[in-house]
Structure formats: structure tokens, C-alpha cells
Amino acid sequence: MTAILSVNDVDAGYGPSEVLQKVNIYVDEGEIVCLLGSNAAGKSTTLRTILGMVRARAGTISLRGEQIQTLSTQQIVSKGITMVPENRRLFAKMTVRENLEIGANMRRDKAEILTDIDRVFLLFPRLKERVAQKAGSMSGGEQQMLAIGRALMAKPSVLLMDEPSMGLAPILVQQVFETIQQINADGVTVLVVEQNANVALAIADRGYVIQTGRIVMSDTAKAMLANPKLRDAYLGELEG
């Protein structure tokens, strides 16, 4: 089976600084894959590079076999990859509905956008209650729901999630990851970046570990969870 998304030997960085070095990742259709690593390991940069917000300096990125590393972010989003950004980064002064509508900004199918908004409300009934409220005035958990809902409005086939657990209470983290499973079950492939390895590996099929811009380990999630060396070496103090 060919991977739906594959990152091959990609180098990327900001200005003179190299962040990613020969990164190789693939995600099969229907999988949940997690990318683990500590702060500043290059996790977010990997996602930003896939989405074209940071340019790959070398290597290729392909979606269903088609190379996308030279496309604009807008083109990549319309081909079916969207991101739930780190820290949610909602449009705080816009309402819940407006945030969702922005998520569907490059779509033209008005009627279907409306049904998709309803679908998001079905997934997160809390958002429906707050449809006219400003996004910035909601709780952290609700904001995370909206950030996920906003990303789903683009009808992605691949969803990139940047540290969805950040800043949330443990019970909410659990909920968010259950939601990710549910979205995945509906047919969306998920690549999730996390520091919280236990929670992420619990729902993932496979995992990668990135350290100072290089992939240093990849395995099935089960094997990784069982691997004590991995914890000591790469995820050490983050285990809590």
C-alpha cells in the first residue's frame, strides 16, 4: 500500500538555521501516526513544512503520490491537508461560527458548508451552544474543540495536529484524544505531534521520535510503549 502522505529526506529551516535534516515520515491511509519529541526537536516545523508554511530546502513531500512541496499553503489545504495549530490559535475576536466559516474559506459549495457546520456541532454539541460567542471568551477545552472543528471544515483527508494536549487538564486531554479517534474512525488520516507520549501512543498505530531535527526511531505504537529504553533516552522527564 502506498502512503497517503510521505515526507522523504526533507531539509527545512528558518533563515540560516537548519531545523529539519533528512526527515523521513510516511502515513498510510486511515492511520493515526504520532511524532514524539521534546521541545525544539523540530516537531512543529515538520508540520509547517508539510503544509508549505515553511519551504522544504531539499527532499520531497507527496500526497497520494503527487509531489506537493512546491505548492502554496492554500493549494495544499485545498488538496486535503489541514492543521490544528499549536496553542489552538483561534481568531479570538471572531465568533465560533465565523471561525468555522474561515476554516471553509477556500470552499465554494455553500450548501455543503452548512451541513459540515452541523456535522461539527454534532461532534461538539458545546460549540453549538456557543455559536455566536467570541472564540476568545471560551475555556481551553472548548477552544481546542473549535480549533479541531475549524480544521475539519476544510474537509481534510489528512489532519495535522500540533500538540493538542498542550495547556489542557488531564481529563480534557483524554477527551481530545477520544475525539481524534472518532475523527479517524470517520475516515480522516491523522498525524499528531505530541510531547505527551503516553496519551498519544495509546491511540496511535505507529510512532516516530524526532530529536534535533532528525528521526531517530520509528516503530509501532505498541512496541514503543513497551520499550523502556525509548522512555529513558528520548522521552525521559516528560513522562510525569
Binding site: 492554500q74 481568531f91 475576536k93 474561515i102 476544510a154
Partner: peptide, 19 residues
Amino acid sequence: RAWAAMREDEDIAEGMGVS
């Protein structure tokens, strides 16, 4: 709406596919 989003957070607006 796209303008409002761009004004608030240009980076993320771009990430959401707003050109």
C-alpha cells in the same frame, strides 16, 4: 471574514487556506 482573520492572525489565516 477572510480579511478579519488575516488581520487577527496572518500566519494562521494562511494555514487555514486563506490566500
